Amino acid sequence: MSDQVHMYLHHFRPDMSKKTPFMTEVELLLGGIPQLIFTDGTYQFADQDSKPVIVYSPRLPELELEAFCRENIERYKQHYEQNKEAIDNNETPVIVPFW
Rank of each mutant, 00 (worst) to 15 (best):
E81Q: 11
D15M: 00
T42F: 03
L60T: 03
E85V: 01
T24S: 09
F68M: 11
E81R: 11
E27S: 10
Q35F: 13
E81D: 12
E91D: 14
K19W: 07
V55T: 09
F68W: 15
L30T: 07
E66V: 06
R59H: 06
P61C: 02
E74P: 04
Q82S: 07
P52N: 00
Y76L: 09
A67L: 15
E85Y: 01
C69F: 13
G32T: 08
M16G: 00
I73T: 05
F45P: 08
T42G: 06
E25L: 15
P61D: 05
M7C: 13
P97S: 02
V55W: 02
V5G: 01
A67S: 15
E71I: 10
L30F: 09
P52A: 01
D49E: 15
F22Y: 15
P97A: 00
V5N: 02
L36Y: 09
V5W: 00
H6S: 10
Y8V: 10
I73G: 06
S57M: 07
C69Q: 12
T39D: 13
I73R: 03
K18N: 06
Y8I: 10
H10F: 07
F68C: 12
P58H: 02
H10Q: 11
E25I: 13
D49A: 12
G41I: 12
I33V: 15
K51N: 13
Y8G: 09
P34V: 13
R59A: 13
L9K: 04
V96H: 01
F68I: 08
N89E: 05
L29T: 14
K19Y: 12
I37V: 15
V94L: 05
T24D: 13
A86H: 01
V94I: 07
T92P: 06
V55F: 02
H6C: 10
Y80H: 08
E25P: 10
